[in-house]
């Protein structure tokens, strides 16, 4: 290889390495910004003045206004899952296990994940859009110059309301999904009701439900943090608000699905260590 060619190859290698390092640096910096944004915001919730009114307003918006869609999704998910499990188990003559398998799947996985996705799309999008439009219309600046910390007033109530509301909504999802699967199994597929409940109560233990609720609380913190951060950092008018909302919702959904895998393993390790 000639000297000139070697120099050129080295130059391009340097460029590639520098670009990769730059991207990693930026990613780490961004993650640091998001984490400190979230930690500071959640911490201010316990400082005076306590924002209970704003917290309750957000609970109403995130929790109460999501119930209908969660009930609807939960019922049909329960029925669809029960039918699929029934079809599979029928091949090995084990349809009596449909109830417990559906219950475990719903409580540990589908309940928190689907509730997280639904609420992230509905409430998370609204959070990003709301904060984004407040940013571009100078309402956040107005708060700041009035001596009100916008993170304490706007972000903390939204984040805590999400952390509290999501496990509650997951509970509603779990319940309605079980009602849906019960209806399908007993009244449509004509399975034995006593066996359905007996096997379910035998296999499903409180730790499975707790696992789902813990995950839901984490998903609540994650989607509200991402959406609030995106909304808060909006620039560029109406288009910027649209971009923030889009990015906030998409990133929240992807993060919920990725985090679900790691949380599942972490919780499993915790149970193994403590029992």
């Amino acid at each position: 290889m000639s000297e000139k060619l070697r120099e050129r190859v080295n130059h391009y290698l340097d460029l590639i390495v520098l670009t990769i390092v730059g991207v990693i640096e930026e990613f780490i910096y961004e993650v640091g910004c998001v984490m400190s944004f979230g930690a500071y915001s959640m911490g201010t919730f316990f400082k005076k003045p306590y924002r209970m009114k704003e917290f309750i307003q957000q609970m109403e918006f995130i929790g109460n206004k999501s119930i209908f869609i969660v009930v609807l999704t939960g019922t049909f998910t329960g029925m669809a899952l029960a039918f699929q499990v029934y079809l599979g188990f029928r091949m090995v003559n084990a349809t009596s296990l449909t109830g417990p398998i559906v219950a475990m799947g719903i409580a540990r996985e589908l309940g928190p994940v689907l509730t997280g996705l639904i609420v992230a799309a509905r409430a998370g999008g609204a959070m990003a859009a709301n904060l984004g439009s407040m940013r571009v219309s100078e309402q956040i600046d107005a708060l700041e110059v009035m001596g009100v910390d916008p993170l304490e007033y706007l972000v903390a109530p939204r984040m805590w309301a999400s952390v509290v509301a999501l496990p509650l909504l997951t509970g509603v999802f779990d319940f309605t999904a079980m009602v849906g699967s019960y209806f399908l199994c007993i009244h449509v597929l004509e399975m034995d009701e006593a066996i359905f409940w007996d096997k379910t109560s035998l296999w499903l233990n409180p730790n499975h439900i707790n696992e789902g609720l813990i995950k839901a609380a984490v998903f609540g913190a994650v989607f509200s943090l991402i959406c609030c951060y995106r909304g808060f950092k909006t620039t560029g008018g109406a288009r910027g608000v649209g971009d923030s909302t889009n990015r906030g919702v998409v990133l929240s959904m992807v993060m919920i699905i990725i985090l679900d895998f790691f949380l599942m393993n972490l919780i499993d390790i915790y149970y193994k260590v403590t029992t």
Binding site: M134, S137, E138, D141, E144, V145, M146, G147
Partner: peptide
Amino acid sequence: RRHFGVLFQYAALFDDKTVLENVMFPLDE
């Protein structure tokens, strides 16, 4: 900042509060 009163270019009123609530806001705080 409590010594400042600011009129923003487009007023920057809080969308979800009425006119009266907007004026009450700094007093409530």
